[in-house]
């Protein structure tokens, strides 16, 4: 599974970037949009690392927590529009889960702007670019997340 290979890349590794933004995207729509963005020369911030999942419905909330604890400054989740999920309802499940996770992140001192869920269809290369650019600059405003340097319990 390439999810695993992708996950193995440590988000906090020295990239020479001011920010580490992880984008967990679904294979069917958002990843296609990213592909399309590439093809049509729509650039998105280099700080963003794409991690491909088969579906947003398989994104365990623990992956998101892990990303933050390991030093991500922002986590972006991109999936199919509601009604579009290849597996019918994975995106809707992701939506509920993330809703439930927000208070947990808040308790951990991770402002909600650091996690964004967005629906990006296969032909929305432009939207992908806009969303990722917008998200990255919002994260930049917040500065690097403190878990990044912190010696964690």
């Amino acid at each position: 599974m390439n999810t695993q290979d992708n996950l193995k890349r440590h988000p906090g590794e020295e990239t020479g970037q001011d920010l580490n933004v992880l984008a967990l995207v679904c294979n069917w729509c958002t990843y296609t949009a990213a592909d399309l963005a590439g093809v049509t020369r729509l650039k998105y911030p280099t700080q963003v690392k794409l991690i491909r999942f088969m579906c947003t419905g398989m994104i365990d909330v623990r992956y998101i927590l892990r990303c933050f604890l390991e030093g991500a400054d922002g986590v972006f989740i991109g999936g199919c529009h509601p009604g579009d999920c290849h597996y019918l309802s994975g995106n809707l499940k992701a939506r509920v889960r993330i809703k439930g996770l927000r208070p947990v992140l808040e308790m951990a001192g991770i402002p909600e702007q650091r996690l964004r869920l967005s629906w990006i269809g296969a032909s929305e290369g432009k939207k992908l670019q806009e969303e990722l650019t917008g998200f990255t600059s919002e994260v930049r405003k917040l500065g690097p997340a403190s878990f990044r340097q912190m010696h964690l319990v």
Partner: peptide
Amino acid sequence: RKGSLRLPTDLTMFHLTRLAHMAH
């Protein structure tokens, strides 16, 4: 990577996981 490692590890992860699973 961070110079030192608190043992047992991953306790922040533990508490946050428990929150994520059970807060509701």
